[in-house]
Design a binder for these strands. Structure first.
Length: 380
DNA sequence: AAAGCGTGGAA
DNA sequence: TTTCCAAGCTT
C-alpha cells in the first residue's frame, strides 16, 4: 500500500517518513518492501540526488540529457576498483589527448599503456584500447543495450549496466560495491559475501526504477560514497534511513558481512638499472601477469608467488642502490636495486634505451617509477 | 569459480 | 603504523 507521506521532490532526510514498527523486524528478517514502498524509496533517493549529486567531470548533472557514451565508458573503466580522486586527472588527460573513441582507437597500444601508467590494474588499459577499436570499427557508436555492451572487452556485469543506464537511459540493474553495501544494509543481509551477491542483486533489481535509471545508479553510488560509507555511516543524513533494516538493528556498519582477508606474503626481488650514455635500459613486461604490458626495469623474475632468483642479467660491477617497498594486492614486495654502466653493446634480451631525462614519459608503473626515483636520488 | 590483478587515501 | 578498500574483469 502507498504510504501517506508524499515524497518530497527537493528535500533531504528531514521529510522522510518516520521509522515505523514494521521497519524494525526481527533479526535478519527484514520484510520485503512492497511495490509502492520501493517507488517511494527510489523517489526519495532521486530527490536527494537532485540536491546532493557530486559534480564530476564525466557527468551531465541530475536530470540532464545523457552524457556522451564515450565519456561514460571511459570514466567507468577508470573507476573500476579505483577512487574518484585518482581518476580525475587521468580522465582529463585521456579526453584531452583522445577526444573521441576513434582517436583512442587510432593510438598505439604503447601510448595507451603509458598514459594509464600509475592508475593500476593494467589489463584495463589493454581492454580499453581493444574496446575502442571494436567501437571505432562500427562507426564509433557504442551499442546502446546492456547485452551488447557486455560483449565488449573490459565491460563486465557492472560496467555494461552502468553505461546502458547512464549513457542510454536503459533500466539496467547497476551493482557495484557501493550498491552492494547500501542494499545489504537496507535489507540487513546477514549472509557473507560473495554468497550474498544473488540476493543483493535481486534486492537492487526490486528498487531500481524504470525512469531515471542512470540517475538512480549514480545516486546509489554517491550515497554509498558520501553517506552510507563502509566505516562510520552517516545515517542521520541518509534519505533512505526510514527503509534501512540495518539501521533499525543499530549496527549498520556490520553489513555487508565480508569474509576474512588473507595475509599478504612478503616477497623479495631485484631490479637492475643499466645505463649507457644518459639512457637506461627498459624492457616491456609480458602482456599477462603483474604489470602486464608495461615498461619496466629488468628484474630477477620475482612474482607474487615467489621471490626472484637474485641473479643479475649479466656479469658486471653491480653497485647497490638501496631498495623500494611496494604493496601489491597479493604480496608486499621489497625490490633491491642495483646499477651498472654498459659502455657498449646491449644487455641480453629485448629492450630499449630510454633517455634518463625523458623517463617521465616512459610510462613506468608506480613500482618502477619509485625505483627510478630512488636510483636518481629524487626520493624523499 | 576462486584467484590474480595496482594504487593511493582514509581511519 | 597497519589495515582496509574504491564505480570489477578475466580466466
Amino acid at each position: 500500500m502507498r504510504l501517506g507521506v508524499p515524497v518530497p521532490l527537493r528535500c533531504g532526510p528531514c521529510h522522510s517518513r518516520a521509522v515505523t514498527a514494521s521497519d524494525q523486524d526481527v533479526a535478519g528478517a527484514s520484510r520485503l518492501p512492497d511495490e509502492a514502498d520501493t517507488d517511494d524509496l527510489a523517489a526519495a533517493l532521486l530527490a536527494w540526488y537532485d540536491r546532493h549529486a557530486r559534480d564530476l567531470p564525466w557527468r551531465a548533472g541530475p536530470g540532464a540529457p545523457p552524457p556522451d557514451p564515450y565519456r561514460v565508458w571511459l570514466s567507468e573503466v577508470m573507476l573500476q576498483q579505483t577512487t574518484v580522486a585518482a581518476v580525475k586527472g587521468y580522465f582529463a588527460a585521456f579526453i584531452t589527448r583522445w577526444p573521441r573513441v576513434e582517436d583512442l582507437a587510432a593510438a598505439s597500444p604503447d601510448e595507451v599503456m603509458a598514459a594509464w601508467a600509475g592508475l593500476g590494474y593494467y589489463a584495463r588499459a589493454r581492454n580499453l584500447h581493444a574496446c575502442a577499436q571494436a567501437v571505432a570499427a562500427q562507426g564509433g557508436r557504442f551499442p546502446g543495450t546492456e547485452a551488447e555492451l557486455r560483449a565488449l572487452p573490459g565491460l563486465g556485469a557492472y560496467t555494461a549496466a552502468a553505461v546502458a543506464a547512464i549513457a542510454f537511459g536503459e533500466r539496467a540493474v547497476v551493482v557495484d560495491a557501493n550498491v552492494e553495501r547500501v542494499v545489504a544494509r537496507l535489507n540487513a543481509i546477514a549472509e557473507p559475501l560473495p554468497a550474498a551477491r544473488p540476493a543483493i542483486r535481486a534486492a537492487a533489481d526490486r528498487i531500481t526504477p524504470a525512469l531515471r535509471a542512470g540517475d538512480f545508479a549514480q545516486a546509489m553510488m554517491d550515497l554509498g560514497a558520501t553517506v552510507c560509507t563502509s566505516r562510520n555511516p552517516r545515517c542521520l543524513l541518509c534519505p533512505l534511513a526510514a527503509w534501512c533494516a540495518a539501521r533499525a538493528h543499530g549496527a549498520p556498519e556490520r553489513f555487508p558481512v565480508k569474509p576474512p582477508r588473507k595475509a599478504r606474503p612478503a616477497r623479495r626481488g631485484q631490479a637492475f638499472w643499466i645505463e649507457r650514455a644518459g639512457a637506461v635500459w627498459l624492457v616491456t613486461r609480458a602482456a599477462r601477469g603483474m604489470l602486464g604490458g608495461m615498461r619496466a626495469l629488468p628484474d630477477d623474475g620475482w612474482t607474487a608467488r615467489a621471490d626472484g632468483a637474485a641473479v643479475p642479467p649479466f656479469a658486471a660491477d653491480w653497485q647497490p642502490r638501496g631498495a623500494v617497498t611496494h604493496a601489491f594486492t597479493h604480496c608486499d614486495l621489497t625490490l633491491s636495486l642495483w646499477s651498472a654502466d654498459l659502455p657498449s653493446g646491449n644487455p641480453p634480451g629485448e629492450g630499449m634505451w630510454w633517455p634518463v631525462a625523458q623517463l617521465g614519459e616512459a610510462g613506468l608503473p608506480t613500482l618502477f617509477a619509485r625505483a627510478a626515483e630512488r636510483v636518481l636520488g629524487d626520493c624523499p
